[in-house]
Structure formats: C-alpha cells, structure tokens
C-alpha cells in the first residue's frame, strides 16, 4: 500500500501559506515570559551534522533549546540554522549533500524560525565546525552592519526579522549571539582522540557557546566536570534536559527505509515523499564511504604523525 504522500505534501505547502498562528503564538510566548526587557540577548542557534536525513528529532532539539534558553529570561532565540555537513566528511552511508539540503529545506517549511544554510555543504572539503561557526558569526556581523540596507531575500527571513524586531532598537547594537546546538553525543565526542582540535573546542565553547540537548540517562554535567577546558567555559554550556525520551535517529530511519518499514511520523511527510521520489537510502547507499576514514580523523591523525 503506497501512501499518497504527494497529496500530503501539497497539503503541507498549502497549510504553511495559509497559517499565520505561529507568529501570534510566538508573540504570546514572549509576552508571557516578560521578555521585552532590553537586557535580553538575542541568540541564533546553529546545528551542524549529517542530517542524513533530517528527522523530527533534529527539529525537536531546536524547539527544546529555544524553550530552555528563553525560560532563563536572559535570551531570545531569533533564528535556527541547520547546516548539513559536506560530502567530503566521508561518513558511511552519507548521501549527496544536494539531497540532504533539499530534505532539510522541506522539513523546515512549516517552521517560522528554523532555516537551512548550504554554505558548509557546498565546500569541496570537510570544514571544521569551528570554521563553520566563524563563518556564520561573520555573516551575522555583516547583516548587523548592513542594517539599513534591505537584505531580506526571502519570505522566511522577513518573518523572522519581524518577530525578532520588536526590541531591536535596544539590542540590535550588540548583534545576536551565535551558539552551537548539539546532542550530548557531540559534547562527549570532544573526548575522542583526533576528532577535535583543542583550540577549536576552546573557540566553540569559549567564544560562542554550546546548547546541549541531553536524553535522560546521559549526564553531561559529569562530562563537563571531567574536562578542564569544558569546566573553564561551563557558563557557556547550556544543558537542556529532554524529559520525554525521543530516540529517533537518522541511523534508525535509514535502517527502516532499507527494510521497507514505515518511517511515517518520524520525519516530515514532505521528506518521506522526497526520499521515495529519488529512491534514496538503499543497501547500496549505506555502503558509501564504507572503507573511507572519517575526514576529521584523517586530517588530525595525519597532522599528529607528521
């Protein structure tokens, strides 16, 4: 039985165009939390990863992180950026970035604040996460200085600016703060030898900041405590507890797809439709990069041996 996803897909587009309640909802959000204060720091959340494919869990992380940061009363999250890794990352089963980008874009169609950026995925070589953050930091700074110029390129961006613009007279001078959004696994990967350069960790955590969404069971505080560097910048690390376990992983989604099992309600209908249409995620595609060393490991183990 084949689900009529093309119909679903049309519906979701139609829905997005006709619904305007999100903005109202967001305003309500802000009012309730008394966030018209000028001391509030605007935040942009950046999520780096394979997004192979993007799942509802990825999108949920953004929602959880925003709620957590805004609940402190210190931050207002104005934008989320999904930045899929480039094909040069060499991860097993990593399909072409053009597909991963397209799926991420489809998945964020119904969000009024999460966006997709292609810069990282378009780089011929794998780019260190610290460099990706730096790039986005520069982009934000440039947007800041071009304040008078209408740089609005699309409807989504305009919407985002609209609802973040309320107290912009007070806070825009400082510009939004960029933070890396990640799961607890990324934080723990800081301890894996040859995966990260120490100065990169220092830059990410020290200069920008980390929002780490954790599943019940893992204890990032312990991990932060054990690492001198993470401990030093602990005030820049925001740990968000996901009380409701939600373990949808892209790995599991690919496995289900290979086995012909349903993945409905694990990822947006539009993304499922795209996967079917392009015949993505087969036993074959899972063998991509099977014998290739992950780019960061390759790069840093070379560096340390030379």
């Amino acid at each position: 039985m084949i689900v009529n996803t093309s119909f679903v897909f049309c519906l979701s587009i139609l829905y997005q165009r006709t619904c305007s309640h999100y903005t109202a909802e967001t305003e309500h959000h802000l009012k309730v939390r008394g966030m018209d204060d000028q001391s509030v720091t605007r935040v942009v959340l950046l999520a780096c990863g394979s997004f192979n494919p993007v799942t509802n869990m990825h999108l949920r992380m953004f929602e959880l992180a925003r709620d957590h940061l805004e609940d402190t009363g210190l931050y207002r999250v104005v934008k989320g950026i999904i930045s899929p890794v480039g094909d040069g990352y060499n991860k097993k089963g990593l399909i072409e970035s053009s597909h991963r980008l397209a799926m991420a874009r489809l998945s964020t169609e119904n969000s009024d604040w999460i966006t997709v950026d292609s810069w990282e995925s378009l780089q011929p070589d794998w780019v260190e996460t610290a460099k990706v953050i730096r790039h986005h930091g520069e982009m934000l700074a440039a947007e800041q200085s071009n304040d008078d110029v209408d740089t609005v390129k699309n409807a989504k961006k305009r919407r985002i600016d609209e609802y973040s613009g309320k107290s912009s007279h007070f806070t825009r001078r400082d510009g939004p703060q960029l933070m890396l959004l990640c799961g607890a696994d990324v934080l723990e990967s800081f301890g894996v030898p040859n995966l990260w350069k120490q100065e990169d960790i220092a830059e990410i955590v020290g200069r920008y900041g980390l929002v780490c969404v954790t599943r019940s069971g893992s204890d990032p505080h312990k991990f932060i405590h054990k690492s001198d560097m993470l401990w030093k910048y602990r005030k820049n690390i925001h740990v968000v507890h996901e009380w409701v376990t939600n373990e949808i992983s892209a790995t599991h989604v690919r496995q289900s797809l290979r086995r012909g099992r349903s993945v409905r309600y694990l990822l947006p209908d539009g993304v499922i439709h795209f996967i079917r249409e392009h015949g993505l995620y087969s036993a074959e595609s899972e063998q991509k990069n099977a014998d290739v060393v992950l780019a960061p490991l390759h790069r840093y183990s070379d560096a340390s041996s030379s």
Partner: peptide
C-alpha cells in the same frame, strides 16, 4: 507554554490554540 511542535501535527497545534 512550552513547544509541542513535532510531537503532534501542526494542524492539531493550531486547533488547540484556536
């Protein structure tokens, strides 16, 4: 007043708010 997006369909969220 926390987000339930991606836990229930958007159309249901809209209905609840309405």
């Amino acid at each position: 007043d926390l987000s339930v997006k991606y836990l229930i369909p958007d159309s249901v969220i809209e209905y609840i708010h309405q």
